[in-house]
């Protein structure tokens, strides 16, 4: 019922997360933030079992912050993604596993923009673009058709807009608002598109 879309461009990653909090047939609110920043250059968008999602995301956020304080430097996006994977994989094999899917968008000074796709089973995948939720059935074809690896920011935003438009036009569930986050060398920022 929730939608996360993300794509990497030449020197940035864009993430779009829907802002609807709903249960059963009822919409609670349409301005829910489904992202947490893990470090100045990493953000994580999440969806899944409500309750689990925020609990897990903030647990990860705080642990990665603790790592940075202890060691005086930030985890790389790759290390952060692998850490999240480990936590999900451990949780999956516990009595009460988290049912959370995430997209991790980061910018590394050596590696450039990076996007990691992770599901609640602990599948970790580094991808150029991707999506979570029902919407992936709609947007992946749009992205497949129009995605280019070296898109500048303007082109990236245009593609993301068209993907969101497809979701809003074709999906049964109403998702009026999307939050867009941009990750580049300057860090994580929320942008309007």
């Amino acid at each position: 019922m929730e939608t996360l879309i993300s794509l990497t461009g030449k020197d940035y990653v864009l993430t779009a997360s829907d802002m609807t909090a709903a249960r059963s047939i009822l919409v609670f609110k349409v301005n829910e933030d489904k992202t947490r920043d893990l470090s100045p250059h990493i953000t994580m968008a999440f969806c899944g079992e409500s309750g689990d999602t925020v609990q897990f995301a903030e647990f990860i956020q705080k642990n990665i912050r603790l790592y940075a304080i202890r060691n005086n430097f930030e985890l790389s996006p790759k290390a952060a993604a692998n850490y999240v994977r480990t936590q999900l994989a451990e949780s999956l094999r516990s009595r009460s596993p988290y049912a959370v899917n995430v997209l991790i968008a980061g910018f590394d000074e050596h590696e450039g923009p990076e996007l990691y796709w992770l599901d609640y089973l602990g599948t970790l995948c580094k991808i150029p673009f991707g999506a979570h939720g029902f919407a992936s059935n709609f947007v992946l074809s749009t992205l497949d058709n129009a995605y280019l690896p070296d898109m500048d920011l303007e082109q990236g935003i245009a593609l993301l807009k068209s993907a969101i438009k497809v979701v809003q036009q074709r999906m049964l569930i109403s998702q009026p608002n999307f939050q867009i986050k941009l990750v580049n060398k300057d860090g994580v920022s929320v942008i309007d598109i």
Partner: peptide, 12 residues
């Protein structure tokens, strides 16, 4: 390395 998929920083 199993957790972070990166070599452990030496000081750590």
């Amino acid at each position: 390395e199993a957790t972070f998929s990166e070599p452990m920083p030496v000081e750590q």
